[in-house]
Simulated assay, not measured.
Amino acid sequence: MKILVTDPEGYVGSLVVACFTQQGHEVISVSQANGGAALSLIELAVTDLQNFDAVIHTGEICGNPALHPQIACNIHYRDAMHLANLAKATGVSRFIYLSSCSVYGAGEEEYVTEESPVRPQTPSATYKAAIESDLLTIASAEFSPTILRPAIAFGASPRIRFDVVLNNMAGLAWTANKINIPGKGLSWCPVVHVLDICQIINCILQAPRPLVHQQIFNVGDTNHNYQLIEIAAMVAEVFQVENFSFGHHGFGDRGLFMTFDKIHQFFPDFQCGWNPRQGAEQLLNFFTLTDSIQSHFTLTRSPYHRSDNYPFHTVSIA
């Protein structure tokens, strides 16, 4: 397949590029703003998308977009819909949009499914929900958008993020020998490894197009809903940390509990290959190869950390 992937410098996008290149696909990447790709998303024209089989839009914004609402609007809506309309006009039949479980907000139901109402609580989540809605609207017999709502991602990546729960706990455990737990640690938190996200993207690309046409999928495993204190305990055991602190901020006592029955009904062979303990072990091994983690936590507030030591031989999704 010839695949266009956005945000090759992002947490998920960098791994998607590595995974699908390793599988033998022809992967072309585009950045949204001063990334590592040769092309810029907003500069794309119809001629640039000719002969592509699929688009995987992983574009994301890090930090707090509430401080920059126009940037959030541009990245999360304008660029995404520009790309989708170009793909449709060019005849690219498959469009996978990596949204987020953040569109659900703090779950008010006992659990959330793909049929649950969206209640985005941040500008970023609001624009993701708008993109989802408009992508489904422009679907046609020749253009099949598929929307993914992953649980909260964890695990190593060439462009790792530390503003996600498990990675943040592991980073602090490694650099400060402590773990900070949001709130009282009782909030529910669904998690999924970034390689499992890559795995389901591969499943969708290989599936008959009518099966995934205009579909929304939660991505994860129902057994991988944990309370924050449970995730902290697994990280602490792996990193041999005994120093815990509790904060006043977090998801509240409820958090979010997701179910993933639909994706397993559509793809019976799909199984999440990583649990949080395995993810913590992977991060421990990853940190031993990356001597700049300490300076990242002490000198920068950016949630991203780029590593040239990512073990690419581990990215197989076959």
Rank of each mutant, 00 (worst) to 15 (best):
G171N: 08
G171I: 04
L172S: 13
A173L: 06
T175P: 12
T175S: 15
T175M: 10
A176V: 00
A176D: 15
I179T: 07
N180M: 14
I181L: 11
P182V: 08
P182T: 08
G183E: 09
K184H: 06
G185A: 00
L186F: 02
S187W: 00
S187K: 01
W188P: 02
C189T: 13
C189F: 11
C189S: 12
P190L: 01
P190A: 05
V191P: 10
V192G: 03
V192I: 14
V194M: 13
D196W: 07
C198D: 06
C198L: 06
C198W: 03
Q199M: 06
I200F: 08
I201T: 07
N202C: 05
N202L: 09
P208Q: 01
P210L: 06
P210G: 07
P210H: 13
P210A: 10
L211Y: 00
V212R: 02
H213D: 12
H213E: 08
Q215N: 11
Q215C: 11
Q215I: 01
I216L: 13
I216F: 03
I216W: 02
F217G: 05
N218T: 07
V219S: 08
V219T: 09
V219W: 03
V219L: 10
G220W: 06
D221H: 10
T222Q: 05
T222L: 01
T222S: 15
T222V: 07
N223G: 14
N225E: 09
Y226R: 08
Q227M: 12
L228W: 06
L228T: 09
I229W: 09
I229L: 13
I229Y: 10
I231R: 03
A232F: 09
A232Y: 10
A232H: 06
A233K: 15
M234Q: 15
V235D: 05
A236S: 14
A236K: 04
A236F: 02
E237Y: 02
V238S: 11
F239P: 11
Q240W: 02
N243S: 13
F244P: 11
F244I: 12
F244W: 14
S245Y: 01
F246R: 09
F246V: 05
H248Y: 03
H249I: 07
F251Y: 11
F251K: 10
G252A: 00
G252K: 00
G252P: 02
D253W: 02
D253E: 14
R254S: 14
